[in-house]
Computed example of a mutant assay.
Amino acid sequence: MHSFTHWDQGTKYEENHFVWRPQLFRLSQAEDQHRLNELMETERPEVIDRFRPQLQELIKAENAGIRFSPEELSRAVEERLGSTPISFHGVWVHYPWRNKLVHLLDEEDYVFVRTNRNRNKITAEEQKLLNEKTIGVIGLSVGQSIALTLAMERSCGEIRIADFDTLELSNLNRIRAGVFQLGLPKWVVTAREIAEIDPYLRVVCYPDGITEENIEPFLLEGGKLDILVDECDSLNIKILAREKARLHKIPVIMDTSDRGLLDVERFDLEPDRPILHGLAEGLDYGQLRGLSDKEKIPFVLKIVGYETMSDRLKSSLQEVGKSIMTWPQLASSVSLGAAVGADVCRRISLGQFTRSGRYFVDIEEIISNRQRNPV
């Protein structure tokens, strides 16, 4: 048994109230009817039934060239429902951590409607291809934003997430969460958020983070990752993850939340490529294990590059362990990194972007007082 767990079935984490997977019920199935009746008696969840408006959206999306009158749309809905009670259509989804029961379209219709506004920045054919992709995210501070953006665009059919840390108050400057979630594992916070966006999107969780023992299963078990997103703080894991990704020809991307810096390493196309563009040459995996944030700084400077850092990050790094606890990250930078990272993941998956390299999307350079306003 590996040290990771998928948590697909009942587990000790669920018994300890770290439930993150919603329960699905289809009233067309007798067993589900029985289970749902028991749930209603024991848990008494708040019921949210907005199924009819979803069905209206589905009909309009399927017939985009038709402008329905309210009466015509109502008739189309009734025709779709037929003689079967509306409660027997679609799926009832129970979110235990909120104790809410939501009536939703079934998976194919739900995904069709939810991604309909992607058209045609993402075509229907591309969306189907993306649904076959699996993306792994290590580290769920910056990584949480990337994972949620991937989920919102539905740029993959499966997301694997790994983080051993818990949500702290100082994380709320950049992690999308609330005070009622303080103390929860970051993987729980992230998995629940994804489930509330799309209960059909497959999420596989690694609550222990990434270790020497579980890195191979994370990359390979259940099918090889199509892309690895590295946002972990552990420098030794950054090195290890890339060594393994290179071995298995998996591309890696990493956002650093400073000057819009994104690293892309196409080990799938360049299996002999030096890790971290050769900037990690001479760094020993064992040497980097267990370093404090202050002790990591020389290695961070080597990997990220002191000359290309923003002035404010350079100043901040000198204060780590003195006037500040660790290096800073801003919500705006994390959000930018999520957008850039998710965009690059999508284009890699669709074969639209094939290069490796270090890229900057520096907002202060793009929008600055030094440039003349063309308007």
Rank of each mutant, 00 (worst) to 15 (best):
K60G: 02
E307P: 03
P328L: 11
L55D: 00
V47C: 02
E15V: 10
R372Y: 08
A241Q: 03
D268R: 09
R35E: 06
S316Q: 14
N214L: 10
L184H: 04
R246V: 02
Q54Y: 07
A331Y: 09
F353D: 01
E168V: 00
Q287G: 06
N37V: 03
L279A: 12
L184E: 13
D362P: 01
L279N: 10
H2L: 08
E213F: 10
A124G: 00
W20G: 04
N37L: 12
S335C: 04
T11S: 15
S310V: 07
H94L: 11
S332R: 08
D255N: 12
M152L: 08
L219M: 14
L336S: 01
L247E: 15
Q287M: 14
Q371A: 10
D230E: 14
G65T: 10
I215Y: 06
M40Y: 05
P207W: 02
G260Q: 07
R174T: 06
E79L: 13
V320M: 12
D362L: 02
N373Q: 08
V334K: 06
L130Y: 08
H103Y: 06
E365L: 09
G305E: 11
E231K: 01
E281F: 01
P70N: 05
I253A: 12
L130Q: 11
G65F: 06
L240F: 04
E221P: 00
T256I: 07
S332L: 09
W7L: 15
K238L: 05
E78L: 09
Y13N: 14
F88N: 02
N131P: 00
A76R: 14
C205M: 02
L184G: 00
L317M: 15
P271D: 07
V113F: 08
S3T: 12
E15I: 08
Q56C: 11
K128V: 05
L336R: 01
L330D: 05
L140V: 00
L24A: 11
P271T: 10
C345H: 01
R289N: 07
Q33P: 00
K186T: 02
S141E: 00
G223Y: 12
E196A: 05
S74K: 05
D272Q: 12
V304L: 14
E57D: 11
E295S: 05
A280V: 12
E216F: 03
L247S: 06
E38D: 11
I161A: 04
V91T: 15
K121T: 11
L228S: 04
G10E: 15
S333W: 08
H17L: 12
V189E: 00
T42D: 04
L184D: 09
L219Y: 03
D8Y: 14
V204S: 09
T84W: 01
G341L: 04
L104N: 11
F25T: 09
